[in-house]
Simulated scan of single mutants.
Amino acid sequence: MSLSQIAAQTYGLTAGRAWSLVGIVAGLAGVGIGVFARRRGVVAVACGVVGVVLGVVVVLMAKGGPGTGYGIVGGYVSLVVGVVAAALGWRAMRKGARAAAPRVE
């Protein structure tokens, strides 16, 4: 196998890279919803969980390190962004519940 064939295989969009991108997009959607939403925290948590699960799957299925085409770097980014999205969604749910609670005077 020549060097050009190896380079052509690792610089394209592989399945691992595609799945890690899907996880990153889901996590970023969850971050956006968690930051700007008051009562949609459940959606942000769900998007965060999807990002984390896809990140874990990509990282566990990767057979090589960064630059091998398995999407391991994107998997780790998906994990981090998913955790942030879930935390922001949880915070939005708590804030929404606190705002909806009856006030004692």
Rank of each mutant, 00 (worst) to 15 (best):
G67M: 05
I72E: 13
V45W: 00
V81G: 00
V73P: 04
V81H: 00
I72C: 08
G65Y: 15
V52A: 09
G82E: 03
L60P: 07
G65E: 13
Y76N: 11
V83D: 01
Y70R: 06
V58G: 06
V80Q: 09
V57D: 11
T68K: 09
G55W: 04
V49F: 13
V50F: 01
V81C: 03
P66G: 13
G55V: 02
G82N: 01
V45L: 03
V56A: 06
G67K: 08
G71Y: 07
G64C: 07
V83I: 10
V50Q: 02
G64S: 12
V50Y: 00
Y70Q: 11
V53I: 12
V49R: 12
V52I: 12
S78F: 12
V77R: 10
V57T: 08
T68N: 12
V52S: 02
K63S: 11
Y76I: 15
G82C: 06
S78G: 03
A85V: 01
V59L: 07
G55Q: 04
V77A: 14
K63G: 15
L60M: 12
G65T: 14
L79C: 10
V57N: 07
V81N: 04
V58M: 00
S78D: 06
V58K: 01
Y76G: 15
G69L: 10
G75Y: 10
K63Q: 13
G71D: 10
L54K: 08
G65C: 11
G51T: 03
V49T: 14
S78A: 11
V73T: 15
A62I: 07
V52Y: 11
Y76A: 15
M61L: 02
A62R: 04
G69Q: 10
V83T: 05
I72Q: 12
A85W: 04
V80Y: 14
I72K: 06
Y70P: 00
V73Y: 15
I72S: 07
V73R: 13
G64V: 07
C47K: 06
V73G: 13
V83A: 07
A85G: 05
Y70G: 01
G75D: 09
S78H: 06
G55M: 01
V49L: 15
V57Q: 11
T68M: 14
G64M: 11
P66Q: 13
V73N: 14
G55H: 05
V84N: 04
A62V: 02
V83C: 03
V52Q: 06
K63D: 14
G64W: 11
C47V: 09
V80T: 10
A85T: 04
G69H: 09
C47G: 12
A46D: 08
M61K: 08
V59E: 05
G71Q: 05
V77S: 11
A85Y: 09
V56R: 00
G71F: 05
A85R: 00
V57G: 01
V73S: 12
A62P: 00
L54I: 04
G55C: 03
G74W: 04
G82Y: 08
K63E: 15
G65N: 14
V58Q: 06
G64D: 12
Y70T: 03
G55I: 03
V81P: 02
M61Y: 01
A46F: 13
A85Q: 02
V84W: 02
P66A: 15
L54S: 04
G74N: 08
V50L: 05
T68Y: 13
G71I: 05
V80C: 05
A46P: 00
V53Q: 01
